[in-house]
Amino acid sequence: MNRAQLGAALRALRAASGKEAKAVARSALMSPSKLSKIENAKLPPSATDVERILTAIGVSDEVKAEYAEAARASATEATAWRLLKRIGVHKGQQAAKALEAQMSVLRLFQPALVPGLLQTPEYIRAILQRHNMSEDALTRTINGRLERQAVLYDNAKSLRFIITEPVLRWRIVRPQMMAAQLDRIVSISRLSHVDIRIVPLRAQQHDIANHAFVIRDHSMVTVETVHAEVVVTDPRDVSLYIDKFEGFERAALADDEMRDLIDGIRNKFLREQETG
């Protein structure tokens, strides 16, 4: 059941109950305007919203459980990469930039690649070339990602990154460029409002680094899978990602320990370049 179907179903249930929208909204602890937006699919309802609306309407517990689960499912939206490519990958960079302008706290976990906000131009190009874009689209997307990096210097925001150690060793570009990429991570880590941590291979782990994800404030999680970008907004699901992030945060190296680990890997890349 998508958002439109859910809204229509709630509107039909209310109409069948004979209760006016204002009365249902008041009992559901929301404004009539919010209820109208939910019923007309202009606002995605949370599972809590749905439960309150259905309680106000007076349906059975079984119906409430069914519709609350439908609301939870509709709060997860996936957009296939092939669709993003069709409309222009650079537009995805613009959308991300708009989200980052509005947020106060960003928490990003990355077990596969250097996070986009920390990437050098050479690293960005190497990553994006996998998508078989035209040179024009590639240039626009690279520029879009570089423009997004301006958020790193907004000290009104709290930016927290967790990267696993294999990311630092994964050879996306030539050794000298990898060394430059690691230098950039160290440089950004010295900003007072930026916290970068590395989960070292030597640490005993109690969780699995399944995939990358980004948490913006406490309201939205973006997950990148092989075929699509998934957006999660249900509070219960968001809390799962926050718990996972904080678990890896406790296992990760920070500050000078983190920079010492990066410097060691960087120096190996430089020695390899010299002897290559």
Score class of each variant (00 low, 15 high):
215 I>N: 08
260 D>T: 13
232 V>E: 07
220 M>N: 05
225 T>S: 15
223 V>Q: 06
246 E>H: 04
231 V>K: 12
230 V>Y: 03
238 V>T: 05
258 M>I: 08
207 D>R: 09
226 V>A: 11
232 V>D: 02
257 E>A: 14
192 S>V: 06
208 I>E: 00
200 P>K: 14
256 D>V: 02
204 Q>N: 12
258 M>C: 12
252 A>G: 08
224 E>S: 13
231 V>H: 10
252 A>Q: 11
230 V>T: 15
212 A>S: 15
230 V>P: 14
196 I>M: 07
209 A>Y: 00
237 D>W: 03
192 S>M: 06
210 N>K: 03
218 H>D: 15
235 P>F: 04
192 S>D: 08
198 I>Y: 00
252 A>T: 04
190 R>F: 00
234 D>L: 04
201 L>K: 04
243 D>C: 01
206 H>G: 11
206 H>C: 06
196 I>C: 10
230 V>K: 09
209 A>F: 04
224 E>M: 02
248 F>C: 07
228 A>F: 05
241 Y>S: 08
218 H>M: 10
197 R>G: 12
244 K>Y: 05
244 K>H: 08
253 L>P: 04
207 D>L: 06
192 S>Y: 04
196 I>A: 08
219 S>F: 06
254 A>H: 13
219 S>D: 14
244 K>S: 11
210 N>Y: 05
207 D>G: 09
208 I>M: 08
222 T>P: 00
234 D>R: 04
226 V>P: 00
255 D>I: 01
253 L>Y: 02
214 V>R: 05
215 I>L: 15
204 Q>H: 12
221 V>N: 09
249 E>G: 07
236 R>F: 03
223 V>S: 07
223 V>D: 10
247 G>C: 10
212 A>L: 03
247 G>K: 14
257 E>W: 01
250 R>Q: 14
199 V>D: 02
199 V>L: 14
245 F>H: 04
225 T>I: 05
229 E>L: 12
240 L>V: 01
250 R>N: 11
226 V>C: 01
211 H>T: 09
224 E>L: 04
219 S>A: 12
218 H>R: 15
259 R>N: 09
193 H>T: 07
257 E>N: 13
195 D>I: 02
222 T>F: 02
210 N>S: 09
242 I>L: 12
205 Q>K: 13
250 R>S: 12
194 V>P: 10
233 T>A: 02
189 S>T: 01
221 V>F: 06
211 H>N: 09
206 H>D: 06
225 T>G: 14
210 N>D: 11
246 E>W: 00
245 F>L: 12
214 V>A: 08
221 V>T: 09
206 H>T: 15
253 L>S: 03
214 V>F: 00
